[in-house]
Design a protein around this nucleic acid. Sequence first.
DNA 1: CCGTCGTCATTTTTT
DNA 2: ATGACGACGG
Length: 714
Amino acid sequence: MNILEGLNGPQREAVTTTEGPLLIIAGAGSGKTRVLTNRIAYLIREKNVSPYNILAITFTNKAANEMKDRVERQLDMPARNMWISTFHAACVRILRDGADRIGYKSSFIIYDTSDSIALIKSCLKDLNLDPKYYDPKAMLRAISRAKDKLIFPNRFEKEMSSDFRGRKTAAIYKEYQKRLRDLSAMDFDDLIMKAVDLFKNNEDFLAQYQKKFKYIMVDEYQDTNHAQYELIKILSKRHGNICVVGDDDQSIYGFRGADIRNILDFEKDLPNAKIIKLEQNYRSTQNILDAANNLIVHNKGRKGKKLWTNIKDGADIALFEADDDRMEARYVVSEIVSLVDKGFSLSDMAILYRTNAQSRVMEEELAQDQISYRVVGGLRFYERKEIKDILSYLRLIQDPSDEISFLRIVNEPTRGIGDKTIDEITRFARTKGISLYEASKDADAASLSKRQIKNVTSFTEIMDQLIGFKDDMSISSLIEQVLDKTGYSDALKNAGTPEAEARMDNLGELVNAAKEFEKDNPDLALEDFLTNIALVSDIDSLEQGQGIVMMTVHSAKGLEFPVVFLVGMEDGLFPISKALDDPAGMEEERRLCYVGITRAKSILYVTYARARNTYGRVVVNVPSRFIKEIGIAPQHKVYDKSDLRAKREETKPKPKGDYRVGMKVLHRMWGSGMIVQVKDMGNDRELSIVFNSVGLKKLSANIAPLKIEEGENG
DNA sequence: CCGTCGTCATTTTTT
DNA sequence: ATGACGACGG
């Protein structure tokens, strides 16, 4: 079997252009992964390149694993020597190798967002700053953006010194980095920034890697930030064989520091670069592609390309206007049922939305009809409280000097160690220059009461015992021991609530995950398990299973489904309200919508609701401007909503009919919108409705059954 | 020190 | 609507 067989012209060229810088503009569904895997196979088989010399970077672990599998299948040999991984995973590997050169232990731990926020809070306390004014999340965002741009604390300080707040932010950044180092911890952004730093300051170390990586490939290049760009640039400097694959129309991570200029300016950076466009789409029907093309031409800053396909027109795009979010969900469910009747499988379908919060109504209505579903993302598994608690125990076992983990679980479950005791231990630890855990072990020496000493000692005894287990026990058994010895299981069992039961189930899942990990990586230790968990996301484990999947459009990037429901297409939701008066943001929303549309292979549904429950309030919206841009004619499909209405009333009886709009303005909103108070005469209760500016204009038309009374405030 | 009550933010998107 | 977090009283 020939590697070039079945490839079209541009694809073939992309596979065989192995030397020098190459930019592949790969439209959605243009066989990008195939090109990348074949290119690797071509390098090894035809060009006699050693797998050892190849570095392939993908965006998600899922994509990395898929690529690894496909390469292995194609070459019929294990890809063990090849680096196929995400930016973050590759950097962890590099950093563990060179950690000592930047003053880190090679066993450094990786902080996720909530760990980072906890640490920022702790820094604020030390710096005597009010978290009300210096919002930890906002601070972390600022720091994160700086790291994306490789701005270290010193430079940040210089650049931000013009105002008071900037100086304080710089101080927080500085303190945060210092604390991270003391804790031998790195956050997500550090992984990239420190890897670049390590290379820049250690020529011999860099030379080693430059020599090794003769051929570098980067997938989803449009989503790289400046730091990632620098990393690639520095690594590829020696051999110059850098191949990046991306689609400027699918750049959707600007909020995370992704710099679309990386792709738009590729030729400027590398004047001898070759550019290949893959414009033939093998995924979707012509109708779906037309929709996508119609939409994306409204964006200005793009390289410009037009997808085409040999696949026939296919079904019209279905557009549905629901009265509210529940009816929208009802409609989706009824369509799913009829598609299943027509022979579609649930696993052929996906519901995509802009925000995670939208999954809720969908879940309720799917459950109502007993349709199995899976929600990807949202409250991620590894971010649940009980999971984080147990992981904190594991981290503390791994590294007893980890103070954030220590603080998280000293009193979880409650064992009588409160703020007073912890303050005292902290003070003691600081004066002696030891870690909190060491200080606890020396509780007698600290000025603690008898009772406090007893509580603290019982904690350290449990911990010491667990630490003793570490080396001669599997990870899963260790987790079971943690659950048992710390009393965590007992505390949950005693609670006896259904919610505690769910937590127990999740912990069971964690034990399973550990068993799975042991099976796949028999030679790896606890440290590697923790690293793996820190870098893995739910989407990575999305497998062909039963049930319809639900996820955000962001999560769906890189995936495809025969049937896609793109729901919640309303101005203010998609595009999100924050982007409404921000041209760059609007373009990103449009690209996001483009990603959503192009996930569909044969059937695409677009739905929106005129009113939607948000923050426990009813919000009246207008259809998304993108619907017009796509050019879906409303007459594509006409539905009789009466049975949907009936069904909705049946499942969730709502007050009907005779509202009285009091027009008492509770709160004036952005633009000309407002919140008004409404009296529901049917149920004798009051509720408030939010009207945005356009919604207000259409008030009488939109809410025909409502009787509007004279307002108090006009 | 522990639990309960009230207040507040949350809804952008994630490695 | 719901959950996280801080303030209070037992």
